[in-house]
């Protein structure tokens, strides 16, 4: 295999193996995301008339909260066992470590979202099987995982690590949340993706920009 891709694949597989054995990230994030929806249902009193207005917002708040939880766990795990030091000692470029971790977070979040989406669709009463909705989720989750991996690597080193990730993450990720909510609202509302046109490119530009910047600055975050 390619010399650049191989370390990424190994890091990716390591985290999947860990998750297969412990199962603590995906299940806890999914349960948490489910709880967010339940709480919102009571807080906002979602009636069928309001569902197209409220469902996208609830969906993305649940995904964003569950995502921060999952990404935080992913680095806390490395920190507790000194795994990050081990990774840094291996003759692997920092970019590969970043991309491997980001790819794992991307996959875990997608699994959590794939589990939650049908449940939400049933409970809130909208159709989940729209190509545009799924495309929006994949693109937005890519942005979440890229920025989230960088900030969880920082947050895990600080005191009060649980609070630092959301404090850093949410202001930066705001354009993706706005874009994802608007695009999902178009997809669920069913006016055929007429208004979706500018939101997906916005999320795409965000993803591309931060896929370039984050690996570069990540090398400074982990050095010591």
């Amino acid at each position: 295999m390619n010399r650049f891709l191989q370390p990424i694949a190994i890091i990716f597989w390591k985290d999947i193996l860990l998750e297969l054995r412990s199962k603590d990230i995906i299940i806890s994030a999914a349960v948490f995301g489910f709880l967010v929806v339940i709480v919102f249902n009571f807080a906002l009193n979602v009636t069928p008339r309001l569902v197209t207005q409220l469902a996208p917002g609830i969906l993305w708040v649940a995904f964003a909260f569950a995502g921060t939880l999952a990404m935080n766990r992913s680095f806390v795990r490395e920190k507790e066992q000194g795994g990050l030091e081990g990774l840094l000692l291996t003759p692997v470029s920092r970019d590969a470590i970043f991309l491997g971790k980001a790819l794992v977070s991307f996959l875990f979040m997608l699994i959590v979202e794939a589990a939650l989406l049908p449940v939400f669709a049933v409970m809130l009463g909208f159709s989940a099987f729209s190509f545009m909705l799924i495309l929006t989720i994949v693109l937005a989750t890519l942005g979440f995982a890229t920025v989230g991996t960088l900030f969880s690597a920082i947050a895990v080193q600080t005191r009060s690590r649980e609070i630092m990730l959301p404090v850093l993450f949410f202001p930066i990720i705001l354009p993706v949340i706005i874009g994802a909510v608007e695009a999902s609202s178009q997809a669920i509302g069913g006016d055929g993706g007429a208004g979706i046109g500018k939101w997906l490119p916005l999320i795409g530009v965000f993803d591309a920009l931060f896929l370039v910047i984050c690996p570069w600055v990540f090398s400074f975050v982990v050095e010591e």
Partner: peptide, 29 residues
């Protein structure tokens, strides 16, 4: 909240770069 000053400086520099790049996208969105 960083564990020491050097790491605080590095983390802050990263946030300073990522945050500034983000501002135009926030504005347009």
């Amino acid at each position: 909240y960083a564990p020491n000053r050097t790491q605080g400086a590095l983390y802050a520099a990263v946030v300073g770069i990522v945050g500034f790049v983000d501002v135009p996208i926030v504005y347009y969105s």
